[in-house]
Design a protein around this nucleic acid. Structure first.
Lengths: 165, 165
DNA sequence: TTCAAGTGTCTTGACATCAAGATATATCTC
DNA sequence: GAGATATATCTTGATGTCAAGACACTTGAA
């Protein structure tokens, strides 16, 4: 089945036959699929009054395990947003009583963000919903294909995740 | 090489052994890789005073071929943003003299957005830069692996790209 | 032990995005 | 060919994000 990137690549080959646009076959699909996923998640979460960004923060804390706390800096590397954005997110989640800020006992510059009981419930409920939705999207692929795809993607993400940048 | 999603999945298996989190192996990597790509593109384009969203609109028009014009609606399906966002983008690109708005001669509700000469130059220059950057990222994979990856991703994107929604 | 460099978090201001709905025109049905 | 419905674009208001830099504390080197 053809997709929008097939059309995009064909258009470039017609307009710019001098360029090798093969990289777009992979990376434009990654970008576009991510946008489709964002949209789908936004719709799915809205039924539970949850924004995607709230999900990202709450589940990062949830999977840290009891006592469900991380520093803002650790949350940055998990969510790939800037520090100003994270400060703002923590403020808003605190107002909604889903997380609380505690002083870091071992570093007076630092802070720990901890999930409240309500925040933990919300994380658990929304994760189940997300997995159901993702399973539906992945029905297109066999188990083996999903494994191959995950492995190929890992090769691309690892350099980003393992360099300080 | 391990990546952040490996750690994320391991954490969920420890915290929620009752759930099957296998879907995250694929789709969390897609989302995270897209964010890394956004960051990298933002940095690369900033050298040419160009924002990623400007690139998206200008190149959509560029690859449409002469006379380099599309309706706002066609631009929506290519860029996956909302109509309000596109109106705003066209306004700003018009102010920068990179595109112009023309009435659609065959539909009085409609508008055509056309690339200016300056906009066309900018699209051509920035595409070359993007491809160079993407080639560097894809060095991790063999030619054959890139083909496999593109094919697997196509299977996931096609349903989104071929349904009205 | 002191001070320079590094680190962690927050503040600020500009700006891009979204959802919802308004408006104008097209198209379809009878 | 008239009215109901659909479509294309824009407007509005709220909100989330970013880059840059401020501030407080920590660390390392002499």
């Amino acid at each position: 089945m053809e997709d929008e990137v097939d059309r995009l690549v064909a258009a470039w080959r017609r307009e710019r036959p001098d360029l090798d646009v093969e990289p777009l076959e992979v990376l434009s699909r990654v970008s576009r699929l991510a946008r489709h996923l964002d949209r789908a998640r936004r719709i799915a979460f809205s039924e539970h009054n949850l924004e995607p960004w709230e999900f990202d923060v709450l589940t990062s804390l949830r999977r840290a395990g009891a006592p469900y706390q991380l520093s803002p800096g650790q949350l940055l590397t998990q969510t790939l947003v800037t520090s100003g954005t994270m400060t703002n997110r923590i403020d808003r989640l605190t107002k909604k009583n889903l997380v609380e800020r505690l002083p870091d006992p071992s570093d007076r510059r630092g802070v720990l963000v901890r999930l409240t009981a309500e925040g933990r419930d919300k994380a658990d409920q929304s994760l189940a919903g997300l997995l159901a939705q993702e399973r539906a999207i992945l029905r297109e692929l066999s188990t083996q294909q999903r494994g191959e795809l995950a492995g190929l993607l890992r090769q691309l993400t690892a350099p980003f995740d393992n360099t300080p940048g």
